[in-house]
Design a protein around this nucleic acid. Sequence first.
DNA 1: TTGGGTGCAAACTCTTTGCAGCGTT
DNA 2: AACGCTGCAAAGAGTTTGCACCCAA
Lengths: 139, 139
Amino acid sequence: MDVTTIELDQVLRQGGYRATSPRRIVWDALRRAAGHVTVEELAAEVGDEVDLASIYRALAVFEELGLARMSRLGDGDAGRWEPAHPDEHFHLVCTECGDVDHHIGSLVAQIRDHLDEGHGFQTDNVELVVNGRCRRCRS
Amino acid sequence: MDVTTIELDQVLRQGGYRATSPRRIVWDALRRAAGHVTVEELAAEVGDEVDLASIYRALAVFEELGLARMSRLGDGDAGRWEPAHPDEHFHLVCTECGDVDHHIGSLVAQIRDHLDEGHGFQTDNVELVVNGRCRRCRS
DNA sequence: TTGGGTGCAAACTCTTTGCAGCGTT
DNA sequence: AACGCTGCAAAGAGTTTGCACCCAA
C-alpha cells in the first residue's frame, strides 16, 4: 500500500475525517522524509504552512487510520514518525554512530505466531527496538 | 541475581557511587512494587522521604549499573521502571484491560542470535513491547 | 449551513538542572 | 576535610487543550 496524496483524501473521508490542506501537507512531508522524523523536523519541513499543534493532530489521525506509526528509539527521546509500512519491521539503533536501520524480516511474524499459539495472545502491534553496535562500529 | 538492600551498597560503591539513604529507599520501593511503576507511583510509595528529583537521579544510577530498566508501554505514557531481570524478557500489554504481562522466553535470545549472525549487529539491549488482546479479553 | 478543523496561545506532564547545604568516604 | 548527593525551586522539552474563526461536506 502506497498512499499517495490523492488517495489520502479518500482514506480520510472513509475514516470519517475531512480532507484538509494541512493534513495533505503533513502527509506529503512525512512521505518525503527518509523516515524517523520528529514532529519538530516535520515542522521545519513544512515551514509555517502548518501549525505545530495541527501537525500533532494530523499525525494522531494518521495513526488511528493506520497510515503512520510512532516509535521512541531512545530512553528520553522524542517520538519519531514514519509512514506505516505494510511489512512488519523493526529498528536497529546503533548506540555508537546513532544510525537507525530499518529491518524488515520474519521476526515480527514469528513473535506474533509464537504468542498466538502458545499464549492465546492476539497481537495488534509489535514495537521492537534493538540497541547495539552496527557492523561498521564494531571494529 | 537478586540485589538486596545490603548488596545495593556494594554495587553502588563498586560503580563509584556513594551508598546513600535516598538510594536505598528508592531501591526498596522499586523491589517492593509489582514492577512497571512510574516515578510518580514510586514517589507516592516513599512518601516525602525522597524528593522527586532524587528518585529520577537514583533510577538513572540504577539503570547505569544495570540494576533497573525503563520501558514505555504506550504511546504517550510515562516511563515505567522495574528491577532489571537477569533473563531477557518483554512485555505483553493488553489494550483492553490494560494488564501488563511479563514474558520470559527464548524470543529475545533468538533475536539476538539472528542479528549477530545475519547482520553483524552486536545487540546490547532489546526493547520489545507487544500490544494486543490477552486471552481473557479475547472472548 | 453546519460542525469538524485550524491557528494561536496558554497550559500541562514528565523530566532535568542550578545551587547551597548536608552526609558519605 | 573533600566532594558527591540531596532537597528545593525553577526551567526545559514535548505534547495537549481552549477558543474563536474558517472551510469542507
